[in-house]
């Protein structure tokens, strides 16, 4: 934004020596750069447009033509529920842990270690989702299964643990845990950054009043980072909503709507459903899948937008104060 004005504008009388070639070069280059920017707008408009156009046949088709012989709303409903449910589980687990990890790195660990530890957590973000899927199904699911069996025997009066208990551990709870691990790095990174930006003066104000470390965090670090934490959670939620392969691999799908966390019959998610059904689909079924993709796009768009609004409001607040 601070780029100085083009010299051709600022430079007073243009000498014949530099004029023609330079100005043509400038114009072409500026046009290219501008064109790239416009292309991005076109690309995004294209994404939205193609999804809408390809969805129309599914939205207008009669329910008998659609997969499972249901109307589109009945088709996408349980999927949307599964998507939101799995993402909510992930967020519920990842939010406190990532705040804790971010605090550990920013305020509790020895300063020399902080960088290395942060990098270690960032490494998690580099792991491809198909690897998370393999890990979830072969390592995590068997590890969690006994715990879920215990919940099923002792807490079955709670709807979440009503059973029957999955024998493989491939439940929505496991999928949620995998998703939590996957969104942990991004949430930790954002929280860590904002915690580290806490003005030293505010921390010292608390210290000088005789605050303990936790009281410093409570009085200055957390109030300062509140909106950052919220937007981190929103971004993590957006990731969890859109994550495909890990869920597609881990989750044992039964369809329908259920809040049961430990049964072998789980609602699928939109993204996982597309990944699993698309290769074998043709005709209107493909359109129906694209239409569910559109629904997912809108949901993630709204979540991301909400995150951005939180950040923007914070900026206003800062300038105002």
């Amino acid at each position: 934004m601070s780029a100085p004005a083009a010299p051709t504008i600022a430079g007073g009388p243009v000498t014949p020596l530099d004029a023609p070639s330079h100005r043509r070069g400038d114009r072409i280059f500026a046009g290219l750069a501008r064109g790239a920017g416009v292309l991005i707008l076109v690309l995004l408009a294209g994404v939205a447009l193609f999804l809408v156009v390809e969805s129309v046949p599914a939205l207008t088709a009669s329910s008998s033509e659609l997969p499972q012989g249901k109307s589109f709303a009945h088709y996408v409903g349980p999927l949307a529920f599964g998507t939101a449910f799995a993402a909510a589980i992930a967020l519920l687990i990842a939010a406190p842990v990532s705040i804790g990890v971010a605090l550990f790195i920013s305020h509790y660990s020895p300063r020399r270690l902080a960088g290395v530890l942060g990098y270690l957590i960032d490494l998690l973000a580099a792991v491809p989702s198909v690897v998370f899927g393999l890990w979830g199904i072969f390592w995590l699911a068997p590890q969690l299964q006994p715990g879920m069996a215990w919940l099923g025997t002792h807490l079955s009066f709670i709807p979440f643990f009503a059973g029957p208990v999955s024998a493989t551990g491939r439940t929505i709870l496991t999928a949620g845990v995998v998703l939590a691990v996957m969104i942990l790095p991004i949430m930790t990174a954002i929280c860590r950054e904002i915690f580290l930006q806490t003005p030293r003066l505010h921390e010292e104000a608390a210290l000088a009043l005789g605050a303990t470390r936790w009281e410093v965090v409570r009085m200055s670090v957390l109030p300062h980072g509140r909106s950052g934490v919220i937007s981190a959670a929103m971004l993590g939620l957006g990731r969890a909503l859109g994550e495909t392969m890990a869920v597609a691999m881990v989750l044992s799908v039964g369809g329908g709507v259920s809040v049961n966390l430990i049964s072998p019959q789980n609602p699928s998610t939109i993204a996982a459903n597309i990944a699993l059904q698309f290769p074998e689909s043709s005709g209107v079924a493909v359109n129906a899948l694209i239409a569910t993709g559109l629904v997912l796009f809108v949901i993630t768009f709204l979540v991301n937008f909400a995150a951005r609004a939180v950040v923007a409001r914070r900026k206003d607040f800062r300038e105002g104060s």
């Binding site: 003066l201 009043l209 005789g210 109030p223």
Partner: peptide
């Protein structure tokens, strides 16, 4: 110690929230 010895800083630093 810090409860016993209060401090006022160079720039005013009330808790903003």
């Amino acid at each position: 110690v810090r409860r016993l010895v209060g401090m006022v800083f160079q720039r005013p630093n009330p808790f903003p929230t």
